[in-house]
Amino acid sequence: MNHLSAESTPPSPLILAEEVHKWFGDFHALRGINLTVYPQEVIVLMGPSGSGKSTFIRTLNGLETHQSGRIVIDNLELSRDSAALDVIRQEVGMVFQQFNLFPHLTVLQNITLAPVWVRKWSRSQAQAVALQLLERVGILEQAHKYPTQLSGGQQQRVAIARALAMQPKIMLFDEPTSALDPEMIQEVLEVMLTLAAEGMTMVVVTHEVEFARSVAHRILFMDQGQVVETAPPEQFFTQPQTPRSRQFLAKILSRSQLRLTP
């Protein structure tokens, strides 16, 4: 999977975060995060809850504002300028833990909304692309249903298709399988695996060890607002370097083993 390591260094990073700090009131949520992501890389963020991984991934498309440091997405710096922010957001797709589909629109309308209104595609073009995407995530037959008529796994696949419809350069996944019933996790992960195999640049917050092991180029382990450890997956899961990451891994590995026992 690590097709990048052998190649020559890519020209410029898609994501560049330098010394990112964020406070919620007095609470110091992010304490100087650094991250560089090159095209076609898959980064997995792990860490206990409250470690700041969700907050950090949300700063990458400006859903949370950082108070100091620098974030550059595809050579555009994230700032408070809302017009620039809208341009960056068009290039960065996001998938949420709670899906956040628009309940008053059909599946097809959910997917075509942004291409029609933001990219200014014709409705027929947007629909053609949307139907292709729905076929790719395996729920073409649900196109005219409303989100609430779908299962959680189907809703999350629609959410992925909705983000992909904008043809983003980067996809952010914020715990995409955490709200799903166990038997639906696999169908969402499979879509994400295909996406990674096709060379999409991805930043994923997840506890799914198998997913991280098979597609991640690097794993960032975060704790208390800091990146404690950065390592390729095979090294991270077999020889974690810090006591904190060893403790964390012991917990989630035993959990995933538990799930595997019949």
Binding site: N61, G62, L63, D86, V87, R89, Q90, V92, G93, M94, F96, Q98, N100, L101, F102, L113, A114, W117, V118, A159, R162, A163, M166
Partner: peptide, 11 residues
């Protein structure tokens, strides 16, 4: 989450 999803799409 509705607003965030819409913003994330670039609206």
């Amino acid at each position: 989450g509705q607003t965030e999803a819409a913003q994330a799409l670039g609206l």
